[in-house]
């Protein structure tokens, strides 16, 4: 295995509150190579916060702490805001949930793609426009010239998300964090958007972190899966060997998935154990090595 694109060790995100601190993410450790890593968890499990913390965009007044946070050779903890800005979009990027809200409603979608190019590559207007048109083609948009001049409210959800992907990938980042990229979309276009994203990530040899609440989607799409609960990673394993998952929460999730071709009665309800909230003593990363590649 070549050197990882991203290396996270003991990442914690804490929100100060009136009645004590709230620890949204607790001592999370993992690495991402040129692969597709899924992070699964229910809402509030800290999966989105983890993604944002890596980008350096944790919602204020969050306090982010990590023993190690490396993007390639770059120590993200040591970067100034200005340096981070040069990395965002250029080395790492993030696709958000709903293109209806993540695209600026009063700017032409093409310009929203082109501006990433201009920002990071210092290109001229015409160059950025050409690159954006090319990128629109890359996300399988048939009539790029026409779509370039459209406003976000004029495009469908699936097309909006492809535009978002184009805007995020145009400057050639090596890591893409996709935070619930399909959950706001119509079921019929979810697969299409995912496969376009997959195609680009593979072609460019990128790493992808796919954040989702949907275990089924993640396990079928990703190489490795990382399960979070209450801010901690409770399970890291290969997507193929999910059946061997050890943590009761993961097993509970799996049991709750309906399967085709197998007749069964009522799906069991997930029983939560308060003990899962306790801090996990040993970091999970070592275990993932054993299970993983």
């Amino acid at each position: 295995m070549d050197s990882p694109l991203l290396r996270v060790r003991n990442l914690s995100v804490t929100y100060p509150g009136d009645d004590g601190d709230f620890r949204a993410v607790r001592n999370v450790s993992f690495t991402v190579g040129r692969e597709r890593l899924g992070i699964v968890g229910e809402s509030g499990s800290g999966k989105s916060t983890t993604g944002r913390a890596i980008m350096g965009l944790a919602r204020p007044p969050a306090r982010v702490h990590a023993d190690e946070l490396l993007l390639g050779e770059i120590d993200l903890r040591q970067q100034s805001e200005r340096q981070l800005r040069r990395l965002r979009g250029k080395r790492m990027a993030m696709v958000l949930q709903d293109p209806k809200y993540s695209l600026d409603p009063v700017m032409r979608v093409g310009d929203q793609i082109a501006e990433t190019h201009r920002t990071h590559l210092g290109s001229s207007k015409a160059e950025a426009r050409a690159a954006a048109l090319e990128m629109l083609q890359a996300v399988h948009i048939r009539d790029p010239e026409r779509v370039y001049g459209m406003y976000p409210h004029q495009v469908s959800g699936g097309m909006g998300q492809r535009i978002m992907i184009a805007a995020m990938l145009i400057a050639g980042p090596e890591l893409l964090i996709a935070d619930e990229p399909t959950s706001a979309l119509d079921v019929t276009v979810q697969t299409q958007v995912l496969s376009i994203m997959d195609e680009l990530v593979r072609e460019r040899g990128m790493g992808l972190i796919l954040i989702s609440h949907n275990l089924h989607l993640v396990s079928s799409f990703c190489d490795r899966v990382l399960v979070m609960y209450a801010g901690q990673i409770v399970e890291i394993c290969d997507a193929g060997s999910l059946a061997d998952a050890q943590h009761p929460y993961t097993r509970g999730l799996l049991a709750a998935l309906p399967e085709l071709g197998r007749k069964r009665g009522e799906l069991p309800q997930l029983q939560r154990d308060p003990a899962w909230m306790d801090d996990i003593a040993a970091p999970l990363e070592t275990r993932s090595r054993k299970v993983g590649a």
């Binding site: 980008m55 965009l57 979009g89 993030m94 958000l96 993540s102 600026d104 501006e115 990433t116």
Partner: peptide, 9 residues
């Protein structure tokens, strides 16, 4: 947030 993620100033 999306604009921040793109690295805009």
């Amino acid at each position: 947030l999306a604009a921040l993620a793109k690295g805009l100033s």
